[in-house]
Amino acid sequence: MGLILSLLVQGIQMVLVVALSPLLVSIVRKVKSRLTRRQGAPLIQPYRDLVRLMRKDVVLADNASWLFRVIPYLVFAATWVAAALIPTFATGLQFSWTADLIAIVALLGSARFFLALAGMDVGTSFGGIGSSREMMIASMAEPAMMLIVFSLALIAGSTQLSTVVQFMASPQVGLRVSLGMALVALVIVALVENARIPVDNPATHLELTMVHEAMVLEYSGRHLAMIELSSALKLLLYVSLIGCIFVPWGIADSGAGLGAYVIGAVAYLAKLGVAGLLLAIFETSIAKMRVFRVPNFVGIALMLALLGTLLRFVSRSL
């Protein structure tokens, strides 16, 4: 009975992340529209877009290989599994031991590897430009992320996300310099990884500085829907990650009752709303960078994460 129940909770989490991710995207879009004095599309619009794309035919380039057709599902699956392993409303779910934080980061790396290959598959110049820039940015962002993981793991004494969250929710964590640096670094990495302004603009096409959109330019129909859904999932994943580590309040412990789960879910929804709001305000108030400025931007995250890791030893008493 206990096993079935915990499997059920894990299942709810898996469905929840997929179901909520387009909503997060639409919250961000809506707030951005309102901030620029536009009406904005209704909150349900991303769901409609996905359904419409799914129903359309796929138009494949003549020389697209089997890999090109498989990759959307692989990318979606890798992102989904990673997102489902991050605590949203409760910690210590049935399969939370499958992969720790390092493995989750690497799983996202797998998704990116495949997506970059897809950009190269048809053999167009736009695909190539997207892939090469994506890998350039990733090769800075991934070590930054890994150093953030290091500093969190060194503070919490574990890379297991549930354990980290329980530690961060406990009163013994206190205010630490390293954590502040890790938070700023993680926010930068999240912006970079999700191709948000100022790194990339998710709303444009045909811009020479585009990265993510250039890679997936050849996709259409259901393939494009899977790609869009996985990028929405990735945004949700990073918001959940920041939420569960730095704002762990309200999150239910493993095996807590139904009431705790409901409180956790409500708290999670509130976190998503606030995160979407903040992201929209940030994106509206800043301009996009030149692509060769991006390494400096990510470099800040890298340095902050490294400093955070080192300061963990220096300011042990804090």
Binding site: D57, L60, F95, V122
Partner: peptide
């Protein structure tokens, strides 16, 4: 997990939405 989610998603999309493919020149 990855294998199940990928094949499950592909199966669901092909079954419930669309499975047609048209070949054409690259868009670029």
């Amino acid at each position: 997990f990855v294998a199940f989610s990928a094949s499950g998603a592909a199966w669901a999309v092909h079954r419930l939405a669309s499975h047609r493919v048209r070949r054409s020149a690259a868009w670029d």
